[in-house]
Amino acid sequence: MTAMLEVQDLRQEFRLNPGLLDRISMKGGRLHLQDRIVSAVSGVSFSIAKREVLALVGESGCGKSTVAKAIARIYRPTAGNIRLDGQDIASLSQAELLPYRSKMQMIFQDPFASLDPRQKVRDIVAEPLRAQSGLASGEVAERVAALLAKVGLNTEHAGRYPHQFSGGQRQRIGIARALSVNPGLIIADEPVSALDVSVQAQILNLMMDLRDEFGLAYLFISHDLSVVHHIADRIGVMYLGFLVETAPRDRLFAMPRHPYTRALLSAAPSINPTRSRPEIELQGEVPSALALPSGCCFRTRCPYAWDRCAQERPALRDMGDGQSVACHLTDEPQRDMP
């Protein structure tokens, strides 16, 4: 069975201050053209099977949203392959992409910014349909009504504007829009992080129901480990543009291997009072993506780091049972002492 999505060595760089005048600087008495380049994603590979939910977790600036937007081709990736249902879409132009858009849709983080405030709900939901299919307007209207019902809204909502809805209802509209073209993959970029907890639960339940009904695969981006644990089949942990660990959900929570994953799991507050002391307490903060550390990206905060970590960048290695880790500790487990 082919994977729904297969990403290979995806890289995404952004050039800061792209204006010509901003790039000129004086160096040693000579004019010098310099580029300030941010490596938001530095070679990430993973795949998602049909009907599978893969979650990418990590803290702000780790590149998880950039991965999502590169795959949705909001950005043009700097390098790498993105195979959607077998077809590489990484370097297609926007026009060439059109036929593949219906296989992949996206749900956004901010329910207030992701809907055009000047469009009515029916036009928002129908937008992908109108752009990608030749449906007659009667069929479109029918489909919009069915979609709204599917996400828990009703037909009379179709004539309203986004500002007349609460955050949770707006996110439902965004989900209906994504579903409109029957995609096989939905990229969900922090879909519940802007919502109140009680509404968050409603949206998570809805997303799970829709997956069962339509056989969807999700790429689910989140910073919230408890949400990820609930929804994901498999989890990838990102740090500073690198994938440092991937594993099936239960495996990752029971046996995290990478020091960063362990720190992340132990730092997350929990309402469950019976919890042991944090295993790893991280000091300091994430370094700038403008100047990545040499070797392992995590070594500046890692309590185990030794000289090898500064010299050699660890590659993601298969540890069995579907778990892969990018850490030198796997070679020298004797150093892994608390």
Binding site: K69, A72, R73, I74, Q94, A95, L97, L98, R101, S102, M104, Q105, M106, F108, Q109, D110, A113, S114, L115, D116, P117, Q119, E127, P128, A131, Q132, G174, R177
Partner: peptide, 20 residues
């Protein structure tokens, strides 16, 4: 994000500019 959403929906640049 709604402009990005329009791109994911498959709208062309001219349509994004005009409609959104």
């Amino acid at each position: 994000e709604y402009v990005q959403a329009a791109r994911v929906a498959g709208l062309r640049d001219a349509a994004i500019i005009w409609r959104h």
